[in-house]
């Protein structure tokens, strides 16, 4: 053929369109989300001292080692640099009490990344949020250790840290009266909760820090508000209707919104791309489901806090939601009326 007669040609790359791509990559997403968690981590360190650093660092190291170990064992490509194992470790750390024995942090990390993520096929194939499974495993296996909360007084020599109960625990066991007694009046209770000056998992306490990070993610369009807002709204409404001791519509939704792992969970865990629905209507349903289960557990179940189990249970439904809440396609309505 004539085209071959003209000697060597310049070699050109041939591939299917589109030939250009946005700058967005999986590593960039993972590292950006990690950065957005820095305020929460800083406040955790401020309130809970060096142990917050140790626990978080161990969770991160444990997660990354687990990723490396399982990928190595399975003969897969090592994907440590994509930042997803780092992020899971960071989230797990932020969801741990600062008092936790170090080996628990390591075991939980392995359950998170080694089992929940890698053994299910790696990033993109896990059914459950890895960090939350790690935490759930630890909570069920070591219930005492996982519910021993340090007093948030930044014990920089944290050897004999004093322990206390979380606001949600007090609310459940002793009621709103006791909470007010401890924190003074309602206003200072809200203020302390907002700042995060209370017992709890080391990265979950400071609402302000969490909201700064979340605002950054929303601004960068890394997360949408559909899941967080429907989640929070459902909890607020549920707490208001059923949360009071004096009958219906006497609950305090603000205490419920500002306590426990709700903010961290709603903005950073429930929005996990892999384990939440992809279509907007489905996401709203998912958020409502998370909120409903959270308030159900908080008010009626044995645990004072229900965010973790709520998200994990809804994770199971995410594929089902996606299957039933598909997008409505361009031109579909017209086609329906024509036929």
């Amino acid at each position: 053929m004539e085209i071959n007669k003209q000697g060597p040609k310049q070699e050109l790359i041939v591939s299917v369109s589109p030939h250009i791509s946005s700058e967005e990559t999986v590593p960039r997403i993972m590292w950006t989300v990690s950065i957005s968690l820095i305020p929460a981590l800083v406040m955790g360190i401020y309130y809970f001292g060096p142990r917050a650093v140790y626990v978080t660092a161990l969770c991160i190291i444990g997660s990354m080692l687990s990723e490396w170990f399982v990928q190595r064992l399975a003969g897969k490509e090592i994907t440590l640099t994509d930042g997803s194992a780092f992020l899971t470790g960071l989230l797990l750390g932020l969801n741990m009490p600062s008092t936790i024995p170090f080996y628990i942090a390591l075991v939980a990390s392995f359950v998170s990344v080694g089992i929940t993520k890698q053994l299910f096929g790696g990033l993109g194939y896990n059914i459950f949020n890895p960090a939350l499974i790690g935490r759930a495993f630890a909570l069920i296996t070591w219930p005492r250790a996982m519910t021993t909360w340090a007093v948030p007084d930044a014990q920089f020599l944290a050897i004999n840290a004093k322990t206390t109960a979380t606001p949600l625990g007090i609310l459940k066991e002793e009621g709103m009266g006791k909470l007010l007694e401890l924190f003074g009046d309602k206003l200072s209770l809200y203020k302390e909760l907002l700042l995060g000056h209370r017992a709890g998992s080391l990265g979950e306490t400071s609402m302000i820090a969490i909201l700064i990070g979340a605002a950054f993610l929303v601004y960068r369009r890394y997360i949408s508000l559909r899941i967080p807002l429907s989640f929070l709204a459902t909890v607020a409404v549920g707490a208001w209707i059923f949360g009071g001791k004096g009958g219906l519509f006497t609950g305090d939704p603000i205490v419920h919104l500002l306590s426990g792992g709700l903010m961290l969970g709603a903005f950073f865990m429930a929005t996990d791309y892999v384990t939440c629905p992809t279509v907007s209507r489905g996401q709203i349903l998912f958020g409502i489901g998370c909120g409903f289960l959270t308030i159900l557990i908080r008010l009626k179940a044995g645990y004072p806090e229900g965010v973790m189990f709520a998200i994990l249970i809804m994770n199971c439904f995410a594929p089902l939601i996606d299957r039933n809440f598909r997008t409505s396609i361009f031109g579909a309505k017209k086609a329906a009326t024509n036929t």
Partner: peptide, 20 residues
């Protein structure tokens, strides 16, 4: 890489499809 189900393609699709 694997699909991480971030939904960006769903938001970008002018035909309202689910490219993922």
């Amino acid at each position: 890489n694997h699909c991480i189900r971030c939904g960006r393609c769903v938001e970008a699709c002018p035909m309202g499809l689910m490219p993922l």
